[in-house]
Design a protein around this nucleic acid. Structure first.
Lengths: 192, 192
DNA sequence: TCAAAACATTGAACAAGTTCAATAAATAAA
DNA sequence: TTTATTTATTGAACTTGTTCAATGTTTTGA
């Protein structure tokens, strides 16, 4: 049940079998059917989650009712609203399964417990947060400097697997453009 | 010399006077005159820096020669290219002083040394990375969902101090718009 | 298996933002 | 203080992306 999680952790830090076991035991599995929400806007995010199976989208709904995707999380990815989880403030995000999924959840209390009792867990989350930050920083640069066409092409190259599992609606919401415009980009690319 | 740094650290974690001293001793002061570069594209970022005095911009130059500002760092802020520093890869960023400035720099080796010898430093950087990540995530959402007018108004409200110290050219490069368009936004706002 | 719902495409009119060139204003340097 | 340089403003033409409405296609669920 936690094989994928264990493998994921050992990619970042080294832990003894015992430490690894003690940490993984803090996670609870939750099954989430397609279209179900793991969290909604206004709630305080009570968990940090590891995707064992399936696919999620983390998104925001703006004042005009448009959805923006902050990120997608498939197998082996982590999901949370780090702002809401860390500061215990109401979230402005929704987390929704796009396929029938399984997540392993750890509560804030259990995570704090791990920080204290398994010091290397501090390093684990330091490294993981660094990595997600680096990825977001790269996306920020791309969003500031590239045209929508190029961002779409980059997305396909970078996440060929996600590309296959997502609708154009979802991809457009990630790229920050309307799905109609994405459709026109696709036509333009296809005609080359 | 390191008063501001010490104060900044103690806002995030608690350290004994001894630990704090042992950590701060690892930093070296560097003076950077206005317009001088602390780092250029292509270099591997060898430091993590704390701004003691002055103001920096961290920016990227895209394939069309346009500059995008990833962030500004004034007194009490940290600067680095976390990607280049962490992975020891050539940076795609420039770090430049916008005023005569002073930074306290720590090398990668000394930072690793601190991680090992002062365990709470791991927590310090975990928390700091979390905070910058939360801020960037918020900016990403705003960039995806808000119009340039609104982003400009938000910027002034959020960073009234930075707003006063920056030219419109710099602000436009942060908002991701041309400075001519920013000028038109300003006229529109002023005429209300 | 068939109807409903969700998704994708298209065109036309529109809005947001860029580009270029010219000019004015402010700052820095000699 | 004068000149050179950088910054800010403006308008006109242009490009990128949006909106809306209509139509076709695919997926889903009863």
């Amino acid at each position: 049940m936690t094989e994928l999680l264990k493998h994921n952790i050992l990619k970042h830090i080294t832990l003894s079998t015992k430490e690894l076991e003690n940490f993984c035991i803090l996670f609870n599995q939750k099954d989430v059917k397609k279209k179900q929400f793991l969290m909604r806007e206004g709630e305080v995010c009570k968990f940090e989650g590891f995707v064992n199976k399936g696919l999620f989208r983390v998104f925001h709904i703006d004042s005009n009712g448009f959805e923006q995707v902050l990120y997608f999380a498939q197998e082996n990815w982590w999901i949370t609203d780090i702002d809401s989880f860390t500061n215990e403030t109401p979230s402005q995000l929704y987390i929704q399964a796009l396929e029938d999924s399984e997540v392993l959840l750890i509560s804030k209390k259990d995570k704090e417990f791990a920080y204290i009792n398994i010091p290397k867990i501090e390093k684990l989350f330091r490294i993981m947060t660094q990595k997600t930050h680096i990825a977001l920083q790269q996306r920020m640069i791309d969003n500031l400097s590239k045209t929508a066409d190029q961002r779409y092409i980059d997305f396909i190259e970078k996440y060929p697997n996600l590309f296959q599992r997502l609708t154009n609606l979802q991809i457009a919401a990630y790229l920050g453009i309307s799905h109609e415009f994405l459709s026109k980009i696709r036509r333009k690319i296809a005609s080359k």
